[in-house]
Every structure is written in structure tokens, then in C-alpha cells.
Design a protein around this nucleic acid. Structure first.
Lengths: 130, 130
DNA sequence: CTTGACTCTGTTCCATGGTACGGAGTTTAA
DNA sequence: TTAAACTCCGTACCATGGAACAGAGTCAAG
């Protein structure tokens, strides 16, 4: 069953503009324009857009998603490496955020007891000096 | 010890342009221009830039970073409220990222185990096949 | 006291991830 | 058959986070 771009958009939960944007960026192929009528898309396009959206939610940029798509089958090693990199990145981010959370908690506690805020406590705690 | 903008840039690991951009955005104060000579920056500016960079890596936008920075000078009642809000936001962010980390770990593990529908478990996952 | 390195200021340009719009052409339902 | 709805195509616009550049002024070393 083929879809016009509007139906494709609705089925895949993005806007028409987004689909066109993905086409411009090479993440989606623009089907040939028939001699008369509108371009038609297959169900595969829906899957592909879902793929893109899922990968984005996992923190991949569109550029990275397009790499994933181009690697696709047969290059599981490369795909795994990208995922591992992402994972390490996210792990680091969590570590930093935990430090910040700690600093914010201390700031809140100090604020509750004292009357003036310890100048620069937050910056000191999070600027990498400790 | 005071620094010209070039030295500040080098010491804090950003470019001069970035410093100026932060000034335009209000994250950094532009020191007064002396009657003759160049503007001079203190060592504090280095920490402040490190703070900004760190916070960015933690997923904050510059706008949010500037909110964080504003916590550093102000009076307690306002600061505490903002700090609590930020703290909750950070806690939430950590939760989301932890889920993402978990997902990425599973993806990597599946990739290694070779339990796939197609040839790559990660691709399968993003394709919604599992 | 001149030359090269640095700074200042304003403005323009870039990528990312879209969104919006205008003026066509096409399709479909009444 | 005609009006509404949809598509096509190009282009412009948006926010974010900078990078680059031009033409001036300023500083420091030989």
C-alpha cells in the first residue's frame, strides 16, 4: 500500500516538512515523481522514520543516524562501536550531573540554615577545581 | 593576576569569539575598557568559563547555565527556590539519562551476543523489531 | 619608531533541526 | 465542474552556539 506524503507524515508522527528535511539531508529517499500525480511512499518509509526517531531519542544526531542507516546490515561491529561511544558519553554526562546535583543540594541546605549565600560555592563545586 | 582576552581564552580552553559570545549572552561580564589599553580579566573568569563548559556538557543550554550562574549571587529566599527547581530538573535529567544508558548498554550487549532478527540487534531495536 | 602581534567592534556566516510560506499544480468529493 | 484539500518546489525564517572577517586601535620588542 502506498502513501502520499501527508499520509506518511501522519502515520509516522512527523510533519511533512520534517520528511522533506530528512530527504534533503539524505536520510530518506525521495521517490521518483510519477508522470502525473504525487510521489508515493511505501510502508518502509514509515519504518525508516521510526528508526530515525528512536535513534534520536537515544541521543544520536541526524548525522549519526544517517551513518547508522548507511552501515545498516552487515556492519554490526561498526554499529556497536558507535553505540559504545554514545554509552560512554552518556555515562560521563551522568557523572557530571550527579556532581551538580550534589552541589545544588548543598546550596539549598545552606540557604535554609544561613541567611547569605556562600558566594561562588556552586561555581567552585562544578568548575572542575575539585 | 589579570589576563587579556587572548590569554583568558587560552587558559580556559575556548576561543576569543566564544568569550565574546558569552558576554553578549550575559554569561560573562565584559570588564570596563580602561582609558587606554585592553580589557583585563581576572582568574575568576577562567573558573566561570569552566563552569559553563561543564554545565553544557551536562546537557544544559546556555540559557539554563546563565540561570545557574545567577544562583551564585543573590539573596537566599530567591536563590533557594531556583536552586530547588534546578535540583529537581537535574534529578529528572539524571533519571532520563540513566534509562538511556541502560538502553544503550542492552543494545551493545545484544549486538555482542549475536541475537538478531536481521544482522544487527541494534539496528533491529531502532527498527522496532524486538 | 616601526613592525608584528594582539585587541576592539560590528557584522556576517556557519551547522543543526527543523518550521513557515507563497504560488503553482493535482486530486477528490459533492 | 468546481471547490476544498492536498502536493510540489523553492525559499525564507527560527533558535542555538558559536566561527570568521574587516578595519580600526593598541602594545611590545628590536
Amino acid at each position: 500500500m502506498s502513501l502520499t506524503i501527508g499520509k506518511l507524515a501522519k502515520q509516522s508522527g512527523v510533519t511533512i516538512e520534517t520528511i522533506r528535511y530528512y530527504q534533503r539531508k539524505g536520510l530518506l529517499v525521495e521517490p521518483d515523481k510519477p508522470l502525473s500525480g504525487y510521489r508515493l511512499y511505501s510502508q518502509d518509509a514509515v519504518s525508516r522514520i521510526h528508526f530515525i526517531k528512536r535513534a534520536q531519542k537515544s541521543g544520536f544526531t541526524l548525522k549519526e543516524v544517517s551513518e547508522l542507516l548507511s552501515l545498516d546490515n552487515g556492519h554490526c561491529e561498526d554499529v556497536r562501536k558507535m553505540a559504545e561511544q554514545k554509552r560512554d558519553q552518556v555515562a560521563h554526562q551522568i557523572k557530571d550531573l550527579s556532581m551538580l546535583l550534589h552541589a545544588l543540594n548543598e546550596l539549598v541546605a545552606d540557604c535554609k540554615s544561613g541567611s547569605t549565600v556562600n558566594q561562588c560555592a556552586l561555581i567552585d563545586a562544578f568548575s572542575g577545581l575539585k
